[in-house]
């Protein structure tokens, strides 16, 4: 993936912030998130439940649900500023330039519409110039491409007649049929068996290979990120706390949170340890983010450094090392050495 580094930028997100106002209190679920996705790149976004991954994704698509609101930031898809678009223009863009693969295709597909018609709806909406007569062939073609067995039969079926893996394939088909520049996949394999998971991941890799589609891959599984992503963004409490090439981040994490996430993966092979490494405590409340570092409460590094005041009084910046890695920790770099395993 060397060419990726020099490839043009497809998505550029700057200082994105999303707030949910609930009964007087305001929860800043996404707080100053910025990143880029280049052409043909697969970028992973990982983090604990509630860290703001899905809300970020919804904000990119212009679909933040009420009472949520994008309060700051800019999202540029190639040279279009999405914030400046009308709802209608945004809707046109979705599907054609930017598509979503949901985590639970079974729930996202319309239960009373046949598979063929559902895939066809996207074509009708976004490719009206395609003659009606050519649609069926096009639908079969895309379903064949995502590896759905016997597509001629499947198009006449309803979603519930398909297995979870097949439903997910249909969702991928709907996402990629118009050849979008960017595919956003929110936990596309979490609900699936490992064997089916492997099939879908292979499919995403194939799509990237064939069409050069960029993929933003949201998950909480570091092992999957390590396999298929080029770069990774680690989210914690509404912010990116670390980002960089997958291999670097996974082998030498710069941020203590990333380190902790990696340590919590149960090892496979050999004699299993007596106990697994865990992250104590729970993430802070989005309605009242702590003043200093949001991870301070749970941070092993801070403890090992003798609980310096700086961590709880001053919020660390997402500092760049100039070589494509960023980390939001006052003591970046100490993480790798200080944590003894």
């Amino acid at each position: 993936m060397n060419d990726v580094k020099t490839a043009e930028t497809v998505l550029r997100v700057r200082d994105l912030a999303v707030e949910f106002s609930l009964r007087g209190s305001v929860a800043r679920a996404v707080d100053g998130v910025g990143f880029e996705v280049r052409a043909g790149e697969i970028v992973g976004m990982v983090g604990e439940s509630g860290s703001g991954k899905s809300v970020t994704m919804l904000a990119l698509l212009g679909l933040v649900p009420r009472p949520g609101r994008v309060v700051a930031g800019s999202v540029r898809l190639r040279d279009i500023e999405l914030g400046a678009l009308s709802l209608r223009e945004l809707a046109r863009l979705r599907g054609r330039q930017m598509a979503l693969i949901p985590s639970d295709a079974g729930a996202a597909l319309n239960p009373v519409t046949r598979i063929g018609s559902q895939v066809g709806e996207g074509l009708a909406a976004h490719l009206p110039e395609l003659p009606r007569a050519e649609r069926p062939a096009r639908i079969l073609d895309i379903l064949k491409r995502v590896g759905l067995p016997r597509p001629e039969q499947q198009v006449r079926r309803y979603p519930h007649e398909l297995s979870g893996g097949m439903q997910q394939r249909v969702a991928v088909a709907m996402g990629v049929q118009l050849g979008p520049d960017l595919l956003i996949a929110d936990e596309p394999t979490t609900a699936l068996d490992v064997t089916i998971q492997a099939q879908i991941l292979q499919l995403l890799l194939d799509v990237r290979e064939q069409s050069g589609t960029s993929i933003l891959f949201i998950t909480h599984d570091m092992t999957t990120v390590a396999e298929i992503c080029d770069r990774v963004l680690v989210m914690y409490a509404g912010q990116i706390v670390e980002s960089g090439p997958v291999v670097d981040v996974c082998t030498a994490p710069a941020h203590p949170y990333t380190r902790a996430l990696l340590d919590a993966i149960p090892p496979l092979g050999g004699d299993p340890p007596e106990r697994l490494t865990t992250i104590p405590g729970a993430p802070p409340d989005p309605r009242a983010w702590p003043a200093g570092c949001r991870f301070a409460e749970r941070c092993r590094l801070r403890e090992q450094l003798g609980n310096p005041d700086k961590c709880t009084s001053l919020a660390p910046e997402l500092a760049s090392d100039g070589a494509g890695r960023r980390s939001r920790c006052h003591f970046t770099g100490s993480a790798a050495e200080a944590v003894v395993r």
């Binding site: 097949m166 099939q199 291999v247």
Partner: peptide, 27 residues
């Protein structure tokens, strides 16, 4: 074997090395 092969191995940089069994139980 196929099942074990389809577990993500967690070898950063190793790429996608999982076994992909084609077809599904239901097929």
């Amino acid at each position: 074997r196929a099942l074990i092969g389809s577990i993500p191995a967690f070898r950063p940089g190793g790429g996608f090395t999982r076994t992909v069994i084609k077809g599904e139980i239901s097929d």
